Simulated scan of single mutants.
Amino acid sequence: MKIGLIRCLQTEDMCPGTICFKVMSINKLAFKDVLEDIEIVGVNTCGGCPGKKSVTRAAEMVKRGAEAIAFASCITRGNPIGFACPHAEQMIAAVEKKVGESVKIFDYTH
């Protein structure tokens, strides 16, 4: 499965995405039901609050082959600082609407 990852702009200085990449590479946690190898086709940030750029960035990753979009746990669970994005639900809904039902959405990574 080809996946595009969207992460929080606010946490990129303190998190290099190591755990997100690790759980994808071994099909664990959010990806435990993915039976095929995972290929990361792109990594981008939400663009900063309120996350509007995530919509066009997700669509671009889909154009480049992503079959799924994963929202990193820094957005939906607040890892590593314990502060989830207050715009997460609206951002995910907007991405789902833009990319369509054929693209799987993962609302967290770990």
Rank of each mutant, 00 (worst) to 15 (best):
K52Y: 13
I40T: 14
E36S: 15
M61Q: 10
G48A: 12
G65S: 11
V34H: 09
N44H: 03
T56A: 11
V41R: 01
K63T: 07
A59R: 11
I40D: 07
G51N: 03
G48W: 06
D37G: 03
V62A: 10
N44I: 05
D37Q: 01
V43M: 09
V43P: 02
I38V: 12
K32R: 15
K52T: 14
V43R: 12
V43Q: 06
V43T: 08
K53Y: 06
K52S: 14
P50Y: 08
A68T: 04
A66R: 01
N44P: 00
V34L: 11
V41I: 02
K63H: 01
K52E: 15
A66W: 00
I40C: 06
K52D: 15
C49S: 13
G47C: 08
N44F: 02
L35P: 01
A58N: 05
D37V: 00
K32W: 08
G42S: 04
A66I: 02
G48E: 09
L35D: 12
G48K: 10
K63E: 14
V43H: 09
K53A: 14
C46Y: 00
C46L: 00
E60S: 11
G47H: 05
E67W: 03
G42C: 01
V43S: 03
G47W: 04
R64M: 14
P50I: 11
V43I: 15
I38F: 04
M61F: 07
V62G: 08
G48S: 13
C49R: 07
A59K: 14
G65D: 06
V55E: 14
C49L: 10
I40L: 14
D33W: 05
G42N: 03
G47L: 05
S54Y: 04
N44V: 15
L35V: 07
K53P: 02
G65W: 02
V62Q: 09
G51H: 02
P50T: 14
C49E: 13
C49Q: 10
I40W: 07
K53M: 13
V55T: 14
